[in-house]
Write a protein that binds this DNA or RNA. Structure first.
Lengths: 350, 350
DNA sequence: ACCCGCTGGTACATCGATTAACCACTCCGG
DNA sequence: CCGGAGTGGTTAATCGATGTACCAGCGGGT
């Protein structure tokens, strides 16, 4: 039991300590770690050695103040209900972001807000305090105020889930939302389905519109109309309600398409509870390729949109916007249908 | 011709600008916003008004440098496999943390690492750079190196998922892990089950041990031994493998207890796939009370440990450790069993 | 001897806020 | 009329790192 008075700060070394230990000026130390200025190779090495020896890293606060750059990126999650809880979307996105940010010494500042007003206010505060260098904007809306806001604040940003039209900020991936849904509908049509219903996300989200449009378009190409379209939030509760409603329809749909996997799984449960077999009586398609879906019974047919890669691309885009010298993002993958067991041939009419 | 065509930096106002506009010294401005010093009410108000008028907030970098406090808390998620993806645990935890941190102007810095070595290295880097004021340590291990490490770095921390024994850092909640499991086992015993198996998390995690001990203890109180105990990571894939193995046992268990809900759901799927009815032939208990569990078929019996509240308590504890003046955390809830449909009476012997 | 250019560094102002020390002024009792 | 105590501010040093401007040698051409 060492008697150490608590809270005794270990007094981290400063650039001054390193300079003294190496017998040079603080300027030399700075130049050594940043690779700037003109130092002899011998001096540079000696400085770097003493730096590691003392366990010194430049203070993030001081550097941030001097350079007006914090090496921090904001990710704000809007969470009107409890979406985050069930949605793997953000976890995957964060994984993708981190993979690119961390190696460059960047940090991810995470915030949760309830609505768009709070989100905008938060960006303004973060910008006013100079806490961040950029932001990842998720869930693009139809008339999204954020790109313009961030541009006004002088912060680079990247918008996820919007088509690549001209805009104040770059946009990344999730742009081919339609492709996955088209594939899913095509799959259902091939199986013989004619009465297909679509459960969409909140109407104000841009990707909701994109996917819905793709859904209707693909059906139209087969000369069909959706038997029903319902908007919902992303909650499991909504999934259950909508499913019950759709199953009670006079011309009951034989296939349901959902905007995420959690909802699809709940829908399967609801159908089973109502005495229907999946996919015998009802086919169900999800979205996201949540790993859970591979193991439930029946295994879930879903759309994999590779959120992780999108996150990585978004991070790269932002880093470029921050003046970092990184290879530009490449985003090859597009959403792809993963066919498993929750979809099957049209039930033969009794 | 400016280098940045439209990215003209809006030149955020500084304390100097506010001081000039209000006709006072910068010191007065500082005292006004911090409520320190002795300023007349009139001056204070005038300063605050011009501050909001100019849209000024003190620079986080400058304040951090001067006060040696960043108002940032680190949450490092160790993720050997893809646990984060499916585990709602962290989402809930983050929600709880944010609820307390955000109102006090604190930010949450999120990092993902692969193993404990990386995690320790990360804390050292964050501390050396002075990027954080404290850290939330999740998933306590048997001989956890982090509390000692963080103490050595002079950073307040809070350890989650450990009993409240003496330690370098405070510990919060999740300490009564046993209570929930005891309740679950009691429930199964009441239903007549005698052959119960336990699927545990990774052996090095402290809460794994606590829960396992509670499981065995409660069974012993009824004069029973576990029919089997298996360790696993938290992945769905492992759930499937373990379930298949347990169901193939000569004295097949009639009830399975899992360390999280995703695994339990997958186990149910696996059992169904093997032709077993749940809970007719097999009872399944989860842990976490993931919202999905309320809607699958059958609805999942699980343990609710109120992670969100734990997060809130952890945040409060940390804020106190940072010298913030907040009400001390109160953590009333203990884990509670939520009985639903995936558990049922012992199958009558054929 | 003188100036030039080059190498390898150093001195100092600066980023934006905080805070201890200090000062001008008024009021008041003795 | 003077000392002492408030009141309501200001001045200036400081946090740690960065970068521009400057300087000391030194070799070499003329």
């Amino acid at each position: 039991m060492t008697k150490r008075p608590e809270g005794r700060a270990p007094a981290r070394p400063t650039i001054k300590a390193v300079a003294a230990a190496a017998g040079v000026s603080t300027a030399a130390v700075s130049q050594a770690v940043n690779g700037t200025g003109r130092l002899s190779e011998a001096t540079r090495r000696r400085v770097l050695d003493t730096a590691t020896e003392l366990g010194w890293s430049p203070s993030a606060s001081a550097t941030a103040l001097r350079r007006a750059r914090t090496r921090t990126i904001a990710l704000v999650v809007r969470r009107p209900t409890d979406v985050l809880g069930s949605d793997p979307h953000f976890s995957e996105l964060i994984t993708g972001l981190e993979g690119e940010l961390a190696p460059r010494g960047y940090g991810l500042l995470l915030h949760l807000v309830a609505d768009m007003a709070q989100e905008s206010a938060l960006y303004e505060r973060l910008a006013a305090e100079g806490r961040i260098d950029g932001a990842v904007l998720t869930d693009a809306r139809a008339d999204d105020p954020r790109p313009e806001l961030l541009r006004g604040l002088g912060l680079p940003a990247v918008l996820l889930g919007a088509p690549d039209t001209a805009s104040p900020v770059p946009r990344v991936g999730l742009g081919q939302q339609g492709a996955g849904i088209r594939e899913a509908v095509g799959h259902l049509l091939e199986l013989g389905h004619r009465r297909v219903a679509y459960v969409a996300g909140p109407a104000e989200l841009l990707h909701t519109r994109l996917r819905l449009h793709a859904f209707e378009e693909r059906l139209a190409e087969a000369g069909l109309l959706p038997v029903a379209v319902r908007h919902s939030d992303f909650t499991e509760r909504a999934a259950v309600g909508v499913t019950e409603e759709l199953l009670a329809l006079p011309d009951r749909p034989t296939a349901l398409v959902f905007p995420n996997d959690s909802m699809a799984v709940c829908a399967i449960g609801t159908a089973q509870r109502a005495g229907l077999r999946v996919p015998g009586d009802l086919s169900v398609v999800g979205y996201d390729n949540l790993s859970l879906g591979r193991w439930v019974h029946p295994r879930l047919t879903t759309v994999d949109q590779q959120v992780q890669r999108v996150g990585a691309a978004a991070a790269r885009t932002l880093l470029v916007g921050c003046g970092e010298d990184v290879p530009p993002p490449v985003l090859d993958g597009r959403p792809r249908l993963v066919v498993r067991e929750s979809t099957g041939p049209l039930p033969s009419p009794a």
